[in-house]
Computed example of a mutant assay.
Amino acid sequence: MKTIAVILTDMFQDVEYQLPVVAFRKAGHTIVHVGLVAGSMVKGEYGTPIHIDKAVRAVTAEDFDALFIPGGYSPDKLRIDPDAVRFVRDFFTKEKPVFAICHAAQLLITADVLKGRRVAAWMSLVQDIKNAGAEYVDKEVVVDGNLVSSRKPADIPAFIHEALAKLS
């Protein structure tokens, strides 16, 4: 089974985190919460508490098989941290699976990994995605190489299906 890094900080979108993580664990995969400070607690927009296992500055893509980025306000907060940006970029350099939903595209834009890609994300990011050199696709899930992306919570079942397919 695979080890999946989940990068997040305060104000992640609870259901965009919860449902994929439950599915990943049910399939036998290991989840490691990566954040800004190891040992800290972060909370989702609706109060879901998450214990951060590892600090992003202390890990690399080599430590994991895949990366999951939940949406909410968390990606926007993470994109100002150089270590978080490096960590995300490293998964693309190594062509490891990356699962990004909703506002997760903000972190991908800052990591400068979207040029020439097809991406689904929250509608308010359409112009940002185009400016990053990618094609916005208004579908429940888009698979482009190592990247699986979706727009919103309603897309989670299709997102989970494609993410699990990448892990098999």
Rank of each mutant, 00 (worst) to 15 (best):
Y17P: 02
D63S: 06
P75K: 00
G28Y: 05
E162P: 01
K130G: 11
F68Q: 00
D112W: 00
K96E: 06
G116K: 09
F92M: 06
R118G: 00
A100C: 05
G72W: 03
S40A: 15
A163T: 06
F64T: 04
P153M: 02
M11Y: 15
R118E: 08
G35Q: 07
T93D: 13
V143A: 11
D65E: 09
A158C: 00
A38H: 10
V126A: 07
Q106T: 08
R25A: 11
L114Q: 02
V137T: 08
F99H: 06
L78Y: 00
K115M: 10
T9E: 10
T48V: 14
E162W: 08
L67M: 05
F159V: 06
W122V: 05
K139I: 06
D10F: 09
I69P: 03
D14T: 01
Y46R: 12
A120N: 01
L125G: 05
A55N: 10
F92N: 06
Q106N: 08
A5D: 10
A134P: 12
H51K: 15
I50G: 10
L107E: 01
T60W: 04
V34G: 08
K96V: 02
P153S: 04
P75G: 00
V34Y: 11
D81P: 06
L107A: 01
G116Q: 08
P82A: 05
E140Q: 13
I101L: 01
V143T: 12
P82F: 07
A134L: 13
A132Q: 08
S40K: 14
K26Y: 09
A66Q: 03
E45V: 14
W122F: 15
A120V: 07
R151W: 01
K2N: 14
A163P: 04
L36D: 02
G116D: 04
D63N: 13
P82N: 06
E95A: 15
S149T: 12
R25C: 03
